[in-house]
Design a protein around this nucleic acid. Structure first.
Lengths: 329, 329
DNA sequence: CTGTTAGCGCCTTCAG
DNA sequence: CTGAAGGCGCTAACAG
């Protein structure tokens, strides 16, 4: 920057000001400076700037998996909301592990983000402590934690699944099955499962039939495997709900490959309303979740908090979800 | 940090050293420092550190779209390769726009990344200049640019598509169609298309039948729309190649919905070997690309360059691809 | 509108 | 193995 300043014959401070839109620099000086910047190929050093201004311009966000389009939609919602705010997203994926989340939180906090967006409400003790110490707004997303850290933007996975069960029971289905991953690591999956079990029981439909198939991230292939187990163990199952559309898709394709008709021989539903579910044949009944909106609103809550100096704490923003009945049930 | 130093009764410098594994600090002192760090909930400020050490610990990577599993696999390859190197990924998505890429490159360079990974070889003039000025290793991926900036990790999209055409011609198909997006923004798509056209002509199969359907990112839905146009315009088409598996999937599902048999009535193939293609029914013929490996190797090239002080320049690393023949053709 | 001074929090370098 | 001095490149705060 000193170089640019010398080149133009002004002080470094004036060059610094020329880069800020709100700063008072005469148009002529700014033009001369910008020409010099161009000629010298100078690029502002933000790490030095943020040390001085105490504003890094970073927002950190952690998602379980970047290969899952639900979460990448949320990430896109965040980046879109951050557009033109001068804030940049520092993205990490936890791989559904709270230990990895803890590590990531630490390495993120070293960059001094101005706010942080997390997925879910399960964190290690140390992660919680670090977040509290950081004294930055925190937004937990995608579920309603029992003990929120700060802001929450999400919905009840359990109630959403419950709603789907009720809708399908209303269509006359009675023998319900559920396909999901091992729940220890995936709290949202576990909430969906408990919503399923509770509602099946409440409706007097007997005991829900459960097939678990390994740790998240859940794949289409695992859905295919799981439906095989389901049919072996409980051949008279009428409808199977899956923890996500991806496993539902795998299950449906496997059924068709075996010559079964969906939904005539077995009905199958998913969760998440991935693009695939509205395209594949048969189209998949699912719960539409506002993934993009979760990201957008989480970022908006963060921006609010940054502007107001975090006056509004512990606000819970509920995002919408709805049952989408399609051909697969 | 001063606070921790006071708390323990050592100098700030010793605290700083305690954080580095290679630094010489007595085990006892380090333990006392780390206990204090824990008690005070202190987290190292890396932005200050990097200003001083001239090492930010950032690697920047730009991908066209984060919602596309091919590219998110590449991103995962990069993060995995960066694991335990102390380097952190700064990820951005260009939305297939070189203008947006230019903006992103600038905002990334302000963070002083130690290296940068790009997708493709098309960049604005100014982007190229900024990259050259930055004097950091650059890796272009996913294709073989005509005029590489520095390192390249990719493959010829044109030759890969050509290979697929030859394989299918070998199976007896003659009337070839192609479904892709408008090519202006997507250079890989455009290379695939030209590989298709060239090869169909070389094999004496007449003129390839082209349907274009809007700007990337290409969706499953667009694939479904495109196959309708294809069948209206050239009803006797025998086999349709698609710019990606996603559009191929949409096309196949649309055909099945219309009661057409795939591949008996029409054969359809994709590109990219997304998970969906090995799961859906019928399974989709495609080109398997080593997406994850592209990311992993790109990061490896960068790490090499950083270690050797960038001795090896302009190295081209070819990544593998292979035709995967499945039920859809 | 522009310049000067000081310092952000850490690490490099040099001493001890 | 530990400490002290100085500075990384920028911007806040104040002055003019």
């Amino acid at each position: 920057m000193t170089e640019v300043a010398k080149y133009v014959g002004v002080s470094a401070m004036t060059v610094s000001r020329a880069f800020r839109q709100d700063a008072s620099v005469s148009e002529e000086t700014r033009k001369r400076i910008m020409d010099a910047v161009d000629a010298l190929g100078y690029v502002l050093d933000q790490s030095a700037g943020s040390l001085s201004s105490r504003r890094t311009g970073f927002i950190a966000a952690l998602v379980p998996s970047i290969n899952n389009s639900n979460f990448s939609d949320t990430a896109r919602g965040i980046t879109d909301a951050l557009d033109n705010t001068g804030l940049q997203l520092l993205l990490g994926y936890t791989d559904y592990s709270t230990e990895r989340e803890e590590q990531l939180i630490e390495s993120m906090l070293r960059r001094r983000p101005e706010g942080i967006i997390l997925t879910g409400g399960s964190h290690t003790q140390r992660a919680r402590r670090m977040l509290e110490n950081a004294a930055i707004p925190v937004v937990e997303t995608w579920e309603i934690p029992e003990r929120p850290i700060n802001h929450v933007v999400g919905f009840s996975n359990s109630e959403a699944m419950s709603l789907l069960v009720r809708e399908l029971a209303g269509k006359g289905y009675r023998r319900f099955g559920y396909i999901g991953g091992t729940t220890a690591r995936d709290t949202r999956g576990s909430q969906r499962r408990s919503g399923f079990l509770k509602t099946v029981e409440e409706l007097g439909l007997g005991v829900g039939r459960l097939i678990s198939f390994g740790v998240p991230p859940i794949s289409m292939e695992q859905g295919a495997q799981a439906i095989i187990s389901m049919l072996e163990r409980w051949p008279d199952t009428e409808v199977v709900l899956c923890v996500s559309d991806l496993s539902a898709f795998g299950a449906i394709m496997e059924c068709r490959r075996r010559g079964m008709r969906v939904p005539e021989d077995i009905a199958i539903a998913g969760f998440g309303d991935y693009e695939i579910s509205s395209i594949c044949h048969p189209r998949i009944t699912t719960i539409n979740v506002d993934c993009y909106g979760i990201g957008k609103q989480a970022a908006a809550r963060l921006l609010d908090a940054l502007q107001t100096g975090d006056a509004v704490r512990n606000e819970i923003t509920l995002t919408s979800y709805k049952v989408v009945l399609r051909e697969s049930t």
